[in-house]
């Protein structure tokens, strides 16, 4: 079953392929164990090399 959003998810400037990939990344974010893994306070830089798993898992192949 393909997950689709029913209103404006695909609206805008993203192409179809881009939207599919963005949706896949979004699914991975929603399933990540720590729901605020990347969320930081606005003045922070993101943690360094020790905490790269999130990006590899969410945006990797």
């Amino acid at each position: 079953m393909v997950i689709t959003l029913n209103r404006t998810q695909n609206k805008g400037t993203n192409s179809g392929n881009e939207s599919t990939r963005v949706d896949e990344f979004k699914k991975r974010m929603l399933q990540w164990s720590n729901p605020v893994e990347f969320v930081n306070n606005m003045y922070s830089s993101h943690p360094g090399d020790e905490f790269t798993e999130y990006f590899v898992e969410v945006f990797g192949e």
Binding site: L5, R7, T8, Q9, N14, V22, F25, K26, M29, L30, P35, V36, E37, F38, V39, N40, N41, M42, F55, V58, F59
Partner: peptide, 21 residues
Amino acid sequence: CGGWMGKELEGTFRPMIFHCI
């Protein structure tokens, strides 16, 4: 920290789903 943008937009314009920590 730009606020919750709704279930449709979250995860489509930044690499996270936002919630204030």
